[in-house]
Write a protein that binds this DNA or RNA. Structure first.
Length: 391
RNA sequence: GGGUAGGUUGAGCAGGUGGUGAGCUCCGCUGACUGUAGAUCAGCCGUCUUCGACUGUGGGGGUUCGAUUCCCUCCCUGCCCA
């Protein structure tokens, strides 16, 4: 179908195109970056502070990760992107020798709420750490990412909540376009790919215009931003169905920023997305929610205190191969640090294994959204015999 | 045995010197979390018919229109002295 995309420092090849019958836009591919190869569709665990919380690099690999995401804003503030550069770059600093994508800090424009002011040139932030004032522009964000030395840098953008008024979305989207052009101009590092970000909220016209605008620029990949916010799953699906067909003849990878639940991943792969990242599996793990086939369980529920079985019998992770539900329930109650590590190991193993199975199904021509049947909203494991209770 | 300080909802406390004690922190129960200001946050946490009502300040008795408060008595706990 399409010939491979070959950029200065990255290459993307769709190895299994979507079927000709149009039943799905799901596709499998291979993204080659400076530090390695990433099979797609793929999920990137999030390591904001140059660490996937609670895990060592070996454990991140053990979970199956081939690429992780880190964050420019956080590392710029602490320990400082220049310090990391002096110490040999982000890969060496955190001892992760596989690909890294750095988010530009654009997301913090929304997540930091009232700690920032946006103007045409950039964003003035108050540090969430000490209240000090900092200035982020496309040039600063790109420069910091070049200092970090990630495999993929991302353009500086201005996301807004999907529910924002149209005028707000339009304003932020148009500014994101201008910042995209400035991000390209500022980017010089030849061993680093640069992805652009589509905005446009839920508005069909704005989303269409943004997709066309960003796709027309010489980025190495297309991020779909401004989702995974307060939109409904249906609104998200409709938005993807508007944006992605516009990229049908585009050879570059498509990355939906911020999505993480298995059901969400499945729907988005079906709609043609190649890359994902999300804090969700790791965060909910730290809060006691374990993902298993058919649903999820809250290990803090009292029923698990007497449950001798593993969280998931056929899971190869550190938690499931060696410890019981009862033990993990105890660790959470005691607030022992091992609880967070074991739970994170499991949820990332589960998520990455889920992506493995999605890729295998695509390659085998058997992909469908009902395939593995992992709809976290549909079932809740309540303990004891591991019975699934329908919600 | 004498003295003294106490006894408040699982635990620990606050308060209350005659007229609303269900207030706090733990513990416990449940839920949320999607480009990480998050090992966090929210709700519940005496009973019930739960937008409210009722009960509850160690037990019993007394004074009073009214007692957690004042009086009597008993029980229990800590400390000091024998």
């Amino acid at each position: 179908m399409t010939s491979p995309y070959v950029g200065r420092s990255s290459r993307y090849e769709v190895t299994t195109p979507p079927p000709a019958d149009g039943s799905t836009r799901a596709r499998a591919g291979r993204l080659t970056l400076t530090h390695g190869v990433v099979e797609t569709p793929q999920f990137m665990p999030v390591g904001t502070n140059a660490t996937v919380k609670a895990l060592s690099p070996d454990e991140i690999k053990q979970a199956g990760a081939t690429i992780i995401l880190s964050n420019t804003y956080h590392l710029y503030l602490r320990p400082g992107h220049e310090r990391i550069a002096r110490l040999g770059g982000l890969h060496r600093f955190m001892d992760w020798d596989r690909p890294i994508l750095t988010d530009s800090g654009g997301f913090q424009v929304v997540s930091l709420g009232d700690l920032r002011v946006v103007d045409e040139d950039g964003v003035t932030f108050r540090s969430h750490l000490d209240g000090s004032t900092h200035r982020f522009t496309p040039e600063v964000a790109i420069g910091a990412q070049e200092a970090l030395g990630s495999d993929i840098a991302v353009a500086f953008d201005q996301p807004v909540f999907p529910s924002s008024p149209r005028a707000v979305v339009a304003d932020a989207t148009e500014r994101t376009h201008r910042w995209a052009e400035r991000s390209i101009s500022a980017h010089t590092r030849e061993d680093q790919a640069l992805f652009g970000i589509v905005q446009g909220g839920l508005d069909p016209e704005l989303r269409t215009a943004s997709t066309r605008f960003i796709a027309a620029l010489p980025f190495d990949g297309i991020c779909i931003g401004g989702l995974a916010g307060d939109e409904t799953p249906a609104e998200r699906d409709e938005t993807l169905d508007i944006a992605i067909p516009l990229l049908n003849d585009d050879p570059r990878p498509r990355y939906l920023m911020g999505l993480g639940s298995p059901a969400d991943l499945l729907e988005a792969v079906h709609r043609g997305v190649d890359l994902f990242d999300s804090v969700l599996p790791a965060r909910v793990a730290r809060n006691g929610q374990l993902w298993v086939p058919g649903g999820r369980l809250n290990i803090r529920n009292s029923a698990f205190q007497d449950d001798p079985g593993p969280v998931q019998a056929d899971c190869p992770c550190l938690l499931c191969t060696r410890f019981s539900r009862a033990y993990l329930a105890h660790l959470f109650r005691a607030r022992e640090l091992l609880a967070y590590r074991l739970a994170t190991c499991h949820n990332l193993t589960f998520t990455l294994d889920f992506m493995d199975r999605i890729r295998a199904a695509i390659r085998a021509g058997s992909f469908s959204t009902s395939m593995p049947g992992l709809r976290l909203r549909a079932g809740r494991i309540t303990g004891g015999e591991g019975a699934v209770q329908s919600a």
